[in-house]
Design a protein around this nucleic acid. Structure first.
Length: 409
RNA sequence: GUGGCCAUAGCUCAAUGGUAGAGCUCCAGAUUGUGGUUCUGGUUGUUGCGGGUUCGAGUCCCGUUGGCCACCCCA
């Protein structure tokens, strides 16, 4: 073991890991764009103040923060929403509403790592800004579902648990709970699944019985019914459960909240989000006020869920076999031409036995091997999967290759 | 940040306090131009690191670093 190892909670991405990551990013982009979302990004490093302003000083303990050489207090971004709020507040007049924006980036926190929870991870953020209608909530949840469907996951693999903070704030108001105690009550409800019933009851006090009654009977909410109906109209209702035990930990959520879990219940949340109608006003000191909602999906838990579903990556299309070194120059001329035309091509940099070259072609996942040797000016095209070979003039080679450079079919 | 468990070859793991091993991977061959199988041979370790106990430590003790798990917190 070398002393030069990655910092705790940070990952090296070897080629297979990078392929898996690229696959996730491509799918995220593809589906988000299908929904009319456009990509944007912000800085990885922000003033620590940006996060204090939103979440208070307690958040600093979990920030990956430090003082830079200009004595500025800075933090690696733990989430995108504050940056989004700042950007939107500054530029909102430049865009037609509603904004449908997505971003893929790396995020950081300073915490002891565990499985599925590192100090660094990648996250997809999708947000809709400037639309208060429930239709935006439906659109956003549908997007979350369709992204996961894009990975081949079905309603048997995951569930979106949907809730509404307004249900609970109405409930607390109805029970005459003073407003300053609402955050504490919401937090207790949020934790109720992870804590013993006794502990939850103790924290809730007088509210324990009515809250447990809601838990047992389920909640009725016109808004949530409409949300589910909206998804049903899209054929996505089987992916969601109304479940008011979901509250989410962050203080800024104001309405709809949801979290996505694996049906097996073995993993942490795959994604989570909700409505934060007051946040932009709060972060912009009331310069701009816009309703907003969004969700985030991380690469770590998702990666665990789809592990094993990934196809081995085909690294090249064509491998050039140089059977006689006297033909190397001719082979290289061909390599150049094929690469210019977009084929992924590799060849032996130094002389090697023919058998070894075919083995390399196989290992790299090549579809075709083209052999340069005594047949010159003809070359042999070998389809590796079928072992078929045909002899063609090197000048007519291109006519015998699949037209599409990716050779993917 | 707190606590528990763990750390041996690139990977997965063996080794009563008594000379550090296996499988896989990787590399090279199996009469000289054809791949997924098979066979043969070969490389690799300051046993995470630093101390201590002992005639002798991979093994026991302390520290440290890293990992896993729980707590905390959740973006």
């Amino acid at each position: 073991m070398s002393a030069m190892q990655p910092l705790p909670g940070f990952r090296d991405f070897l080629p297979d890991d990078c392929a898996a990551r690229n696959y996730i990013f491509e799918k995220w982009r593809e589906v988000a764009r299908r929904y009319g979302f456009v990509e944007w990004d912000g800085p990885v490093l922000e003033p620590t103040e940006l996060y204090k302003k939103k979440s208070g000083n307690e958040i600093v303990g979990q920030l990956f923060n430090f003082t830079d050489k200009g004595e500025r207090e800075v933090a690696l971004r733990p989430e995108l929403t504050p940056t989004l709020a700042r950007v939107v507040a500054a530029h909102e007049r430049e865009f037609r509403k509603p904004l449908k924006w997505f971003s893929i980036g790396q995020f950081f926190r300073y915490e002891k790592q565990q499985r599925g929870r590192l100090r660094e991870h990648y996250q997809l953020n999708c947000d809709i800004i400037g639309e208060s209608d429930l239709a935006a909530d439906v659109e956003l949840v549908a997007l979350a579902i369709d992204i996961l469907r894009g990975f081949g996951l079905t309603e048997k693999d995951f569930v979106v648990r949907i809730s509404d903070r307004e249900f609970w704030t109405d409930f607390l108001r109805d029970k005459n709970v003073p407003e300053e105690r609402w955050p504490e009550m919401l937090q207790t409800i949020d934790k109720s699944e992870r804590e013993s019933r006794e502990k939850t009851a103790e924290k809730l006090g007088m509210l324990a019985d009515p809250v447990f009654e809601v838990f047992n009977k389920g909640a009725t909410s016109a808004k949530l019914d409409n949300l589910v109906e909206g998804l049903r109209a899209r054929g996505l209702a089987e992916f969601v459960d109304v479940d008011v035990r979901i509250v989410r930990g962050l203080a800024y959520y104001t309405g709809t909240v949801f979290e996505v879990f694996d049906r097996g219940g073995k993993l942490r949340a795959i994604a989570g989000g909700g409505r934060y109608d007051n946040l932009i006003a709060q972060l912009s000191d009331n310069a701009v006020s816009m309703p907003a909602l969004g969700f985030a999906m991380g690469d770590v838990v998702l990666g665990e869920l789809i592990r094993g579903r990934l196809q081995p990556e085909r690294k090249i299309d064509i491998y050039i076999v140089i059977a006689k070194e006297t033909r190397r120059a001719d082979a290289l001329a061909q390599v150049q031409q094929l690469r210019d035309r977009g084929y992924r091509v590799d060849f032996p940099l130094t002389s090697a036995k023919v058998g070894k070259q075919f083995q390399t072609a196989e290992d790299l996942g090549a579809t075709l091997a083209i052999l340069y040797g005594d047949e010159w000016p003809q070359v042999k095209i070998k389809t590796l999967a079928t072992r078929e070979e045909k002899l063609v003039s090197h000048q007519e080679l291109s006519a015998h290759l699949p037209a599409h450079p990716s050779l993917s079919s």
